[in-house]
Structures are given as C-alpha cells and as structure tokens.
Design a protein around this nucleic acid. Structure first.
Lengths: 143, 143, 143, 143
DNA sequence: GTGGTCTAGACCACC
DNA sequence: GTGGTCTAGACCACT
C-alpha cells in the first residue's frame, strides 16, 4: 500500500503532491491496475491533512483516468503507467540505484541529486528535438 | 543567463517554480555568486507571467539569503549552493548524463526518469539513516 | 452572459447543474470561444450557492477542456461544442420551437415535453445501431 | 417491463436516475396503474447497483404516491402521470419522433437534441408567463 | 478583485 | 464505513 508523505511548506499544494507520488508509483509499477489506494481516512491519519484534500487529489486522478472511486469500497487503480525499462530489476534501475548511492555517499543532498538529473534531462532535450516543449518541467495533470 | 520555464497547469505556483529553478542552477554552478538574474521585465517577456509574481520569487530568495535586489541595477546572486562532485566535468555528472541519455533513448519520458531517480533516492534513504525525516521529498524553501 | 438556475431539491448536485447548463449553452452557440463565464461571486449573488461549489464546476469544465480559469481575470470558454444544424435560425430549431409551443399549449408540462423527446430518442437509438451504449442517458463529463 | 439504465459518472445519484426514468415512463403511459416494477434483484442484475439503492428509489416513489410496495409481491404503480396529447399515436408524438429522426440523421448527438429542446422550452417560458419560477429546470421530486 | 487551496464539519449516497 | 456534496471562512496566488 502506497504511503504518502506531504511536505507542507514546500509551496506545492498537498493534493498535487499526492497526485505526483501516485503517478510515480504507477510509473514504477509499485502500484498496478486493481490495486487499492489508501482510504481518505487512512491518509488523514498518516499525514494530518484534511480528508477533502485527499478526495480532491483522488477525484483529479479519476478524471485523468488513472483511478476509480467506488463509494463504499474505496479507490482503485484503473490504468498502468508502467514503462518497459523501468522494472524493478532492469539494468537502468540497477544503474541509477548505484549512481544515487555513490552520489549521496559523496555528500550530495537529495536536492543536489535531483538537480543533477534535471540538468542532464535539460541537456538531453536541448540536444535532441528541441521542438518538444510539452515534455519539459513537471508533467501536466493530463488536463 | 538563466531562462525560466513556467509550467502553468502543473498546480505548482509560478513563483515556486522560479525559486526551484534558480536553486537548481545554484546547486549546479550554472549560476554563481555575482551573476545577474534576468529582470522582471525579461522574465515577463519570456514567460507571460506577471512582473509582480517574478518579484515575489526574487524577494523570497532574497529573504533566504540567496540573492540581493539592488534597485535600478538588478538582482544578483549572493550565495553559492554549488557542491563538490556536481561540477560540470565531474564523474558523477558524466555518468548521469550518459544514464539519462540511455534512459530516454529507451523511450522513457522525462517523468519516468525522475520517477526512477526518486525511487532510488527513497530506497537509499530507507537503507541509510531512516531517522532523517527532513531530507525527504522536495526541499523546503528554508528561511 | 449565461445565467445559471439551480434547482435545489432536484437531487442533482449543484455543480453538475452548472456544468450541464454551460454545456448546453456551448452546444447552442449561446456561449462561444473567448466568452467569459460569470465570476464565482456573481454566480453566488444570483443563485445563493457557495463560491467553492461554483469553482468546483468551473474546475471540472477546465479539466474537460471546455474553459480556462485565469486567476485575477476570470473564466473563459476555450472550446466550442456548437453543431451545424443547431444554429439559431436553422430549420431544426424553428421546428422544435414550433413543436414545443404547440405541446405546451396543449397543456403538457416541461417534464412531459422532455419525456416525449427522451422517448423519441430512445426509440431512435433502439432502431439504429443498438450497440452504441455510451450515447444514452445524460452525457458523461468526458471522464 | 421497464428497464433502467444507470449512468455512473454522470454525477446524478443512482436512485434519482431510477425515479426520473420511472416518472418518464409514467408520463408516457409506458407504465400504467397496476403495472409491476422490476424487483430489486432484477435491477441489480441489470445494472450492477446495490439492492438498497433500488429500494431507496422505490421508497421515495411510494412516498410520492406513485407506487406501492407490497411485501413478498413486488412494487406496483398506483398513480398515472399520463397526459392527453402524449399517447403513443398522438400527433405530437409522431411529430417529435420525426423531428428527432431528422435531427440525429443530421449528426446531432443525444445531448444536442436535448439542448435544442431545453432551449426551446426556456424560450417558451420566457415568452409566456415569466412569473412561473417553479416550472423551470428539472422537475422537483415533489413530496 | 480574480481564482485557488485548505480546513472543519454537517449531511448524503452507496456497499 | 466508504466516497461525495456543500457550506463557511481563512489565507494565498495572480492580474
């Protein structure tokens, strides 16, 4: 069962953080079609945010076609975002785990690591196909 | 000169995006002490956001001690966040660039890449020192 | 400017009624791309529902790609649902106006008229292409 | 025997949809006094909604004086809402059937057709007797 | 002054 | 007991 961690004070709305974390779990295959998300109540207990805020996030994901809210039952994943190449035992995954380990051992903070990756992504995008503007920065809610 | 890209519709406030991108540039050494940030007017032209929003971001960063607003002159970096190991020609950087290139060539989207890295970071944090709660998720704006 | 009428006690959520009425105006061409919807405050004054409820409806329509919420400016139509054949001066429209007039003159209530049309629609659907289940009953929110 | 079609995702509560569809059948004469409604079990099989939800709808209609629940026997219509002019072979009905056929043949969707009729009804109400506020929008569940 | 987030709490729909 | 709507009001983001 996914566990959300809300960073109040990051400036990012709580419901956006829930959506982002859920999407990430879907991409990694941690969450799969049919899996149940925690109930609003459970999230409230774990994060101290308001149930309405959780439901707002779940509703947004429902409209994006990712999950289904069933009254009386719970919220369930309806679509996978898993990618070939991102499996738990894939080479790419083993490599990044190794790289991250060395980076952190070097003394780099989490934010440094993410900055390095973002820079690499930006560089890649500038090299290849610089006419793909929608794929930069945080992914849209599918709007 | 740093160029901001604002993703309207990401749900993340515009001024937060500016701060995040600036911080990232500081960590990477792309921006260094003494460097000038674009004027509000320049940012407005490039991003179509309101000048007040840019100034709000700059003011936040000034309070965080990262930049200095000099009236009539512009906004200048006053503190470095550069890290040894994150230099442009460091091994870690060459490796991540290579890894990102292969990941994207495999067909992974930007969001997939970030999900992979985030998962690796979470795994690392769970292994080492699981009692370090403040270093998870997005870094706080500090103060 | 569209004016919403909320029927409390119909059992249909207020935000759904707003969405339905807006969609209808888009289909009829009463609302066109670029048109401004009333502000949440204006709707509140006219209907005595809570501003959050109005915003919920507007947000839903934004996610459906029908309108755009611009902070500080208002909410604007971004997509037309107008259909050729439904113009103000089209034969179909003149005919239905005439038919409705006669139906109501006969003593039929609004609900009777809608029941007649719904029955005719059902009959038509049963005759033609009975394998088109999604087009029956109220239209989905585009989910 | 009436067949209910529930549109989950329309935002309209399931029990309201049952009541609306039953009322419509009563107005059209499709259901007449003495007719039996499907059992909760039959509705459940056809629509995959919970039996309690069906019973809730039936109870609401019983309170409205439309049907009678006889334990062990079933639910029966006790009041007609049929209108002269809405009979199966009435001119109005033949005309609307013809009009709907042409409208749909033109490419208009079900929702377009309903939007056209609603617009015509609104126009009629605005012309005649604009001081009859209760007869607009969806008819109340009464009581 | 616009839309936007979040909280708190009441009540409802559905399983 | 699950999700869902609505209200009320505080505070924030943006023009």
């Amino acid at each position: 069962m996914i566990e959300y961690r809300i960073d109040r004070g990051s400036g990012v709305p709580a419901y956006v953080q829930i959506v982002e974390q859920t999407e990430r779990a879907l991409r990694m295959g941690t969450l799969q079609v049919g899996d149940k998300l925690p109930t609003a109540r459970e999230v409230v207990e774990a994060t101290a945010i308001n149930p309405n805020t959780v439901l707002r996030a779940y509703r947004d994901m429902e409209q994006a076609g990712l999950v289904e809210l069933r009254r009386g039952l719970g919220t369930f994943v309806t679509r996978s975002l898993a990618r070939p190449g991102a499996e738990n035992d894939s080479p790419l995954r083993r490599e990044v785990t190794d790289w991250v380990t060395r980076a952190r051992a070097t003394g780099l903070e989490r934010a440094d690591v993410l900055a390095l990756v973002t820079a690499a992504l930006d560089a890649y995008d500038n090299e290849h196909d610089s006419t793909r503007p929608g794929d930069r920065e945080r992914k849209k809610e599918d709007a």
